[in-house]
Design a protein around this nucleic acid. Structure first.
Lengths: 235, 235
DNA sequence: GCAAGTTAATTGTCCAACAAGTTCCGGGAG
DNA sequence: CTCCCGGAACTTGTTGGACAATTAACTTGC
């Protein structure tokens, strides 16, 4: 690419560029984007790179190509919105308030149920991993690199404990998106409540095998994060 | 392709072939699949087609490519299991009982919540579409093409009524997968209970704005489908 | 035994051309 | 004048070859 030097293969950065342009509404649904030749000269790459990028976008349901008709942006309802990369692209632009609310609403549906399952099904080893992670979080706090890594380990252990790989895949996609919202949060000088005590409560509920308590704590955790995020976005 | 004549562009059928081979365990996680040149000669297509297929697989998180190292199958936990195509590929092979159970467990978490939202938020126009669909289903039955189309319209209207596009995307992915399980069901001579009365109940609950009733009916609906599917798979 | 440099293999990228398919336009028939 | 049919042009689809960039694996030297 003549402009925009980024790492990695060109088709990856190109797919990202085009994908962001689409999800941010630059190319509305139903419109056809420029032909492959034009895109190639526009971005200063070969047609091969353009085509491979478009394949990636079509694999995510963003576009569909047909001879003579060109490559058309599919309607938003057909996009694979839960694709982690697609979610990341959404947060490249300014995500709408409605979108963020949908995200937290989905969390509120899925994660309490996952916590319930984890409380009942977790193995001793999985529980131990959660315990370690909570300890590290308590020591390091959530602002440090290590603390955030421990937070991810904690939630990953919960997901694995559900024994449901579809649920795990869904939640990890959501988690990736939520990380972007927390990024926004930290950019804002607002104070928000410390989530670590709730994490400890969740760990104890899972350790006790108390499904109802695990659900309740998770709901409070998400509600708190949702409120804080909403305030940060409103500011 | 020299062998396996299917419709559509070669890279699509190729991606499907490779994707199915991966998800069915033919190429286990961590293994590197043959080089692009070898794949090209093996399938009788050019390297470009192979590469575009691999881009599609990498967009779904199935593989990752690096120079000299080749294209490696990523660990299953990193796959975008909720991708509709990926789910379809899963059902190309014989899906494990555990996978089908995970699928219905996820339905049981997500769809009752969606029904609740729909009962509260649906517009008059959306409600009318649901009513039409239920009527067609009742007249035609679920074995006819028209009846099945009406069934899909009914559930699509519910999803749209939730006002949550992420929830809608998730549920439509699940629905696509469930269609494959019902395909199995119909192949088996087992009788299963008529789901149409429950659909009517669900419609009436949503029409009345009764969220709790909508949740309850949806739970019964899924439980029934899960039991029937389990019996069909056990036979 | 270890470290640094070298080699070789694989993906990444470019180019040029032809094939296939479809949309669009125009002509002819009713 | 309308509708159907056919052809032409444009876009994606596919091919083959060539070279560059990257890096894993080997080799050499310390």
């Amino acid at each position: 690419m003549a402009n925009g030097e980024r790492r990695g293969p060109a088709h990856v950065t190109l797919a990202r560029t085009l994908g962001v342009a689409i999800v941010t509404g630059d190319h509305p649904s139903g419109t056809v984007l420029p032909g492959e030749l034009e895109l190639a000269s526009q971005f200063g790459v070969s047609r091969s790179v353009i085509r491979e990028s478009l394949r990636m976008l079509s694999a995510k349901g963003l576009v569909e190509s047909r001879p003579k008709a060109g490559t058309r942006v599919r309607e938003r309802a057909l996009w694979n919105l839960l694709d982690p990369e697609l979610l990341a692209w959404m947060f490249e632009g300014a995500p709408s308030l409605g979108f963020v609310r949908s995200l937290f609403q989905l969390r509120m549906i899925v994660e309490p149920a996952a916590a319930e399952l984890a409380a009942v099904q977790r193995s001793a080893a999985q529980l131990a991993r959660m315990g370690d992670a909570v300890q590290v979080m308590a020591r390091q706090g959530l602002r440090t690199q290590e603390g955030q890594a421990a937070d991810q380990r904690f939630h990953a252990a919960i997901l694995e404990s559900t024994g449901n790989e579809l649920l795990a895949s869904l939640s990890s996609s959501i988690a990736a998106a939520v990380r972007w919202t927390t990024f926004f949060k930290y950019r804002v000088p607002l104070e928000y409540r410390d989530p670590i005590p709730l994490h400890r409560d969740l760990f104890e509920a899972i350790a006790a095998g108390d499904a109802a308590a695990a659900r309740g704590v998770t709901e409070r955790l998400i509600a708190q994060a949702g409120l804080d995020t909403e305030r940060a976005l409103g500011a």
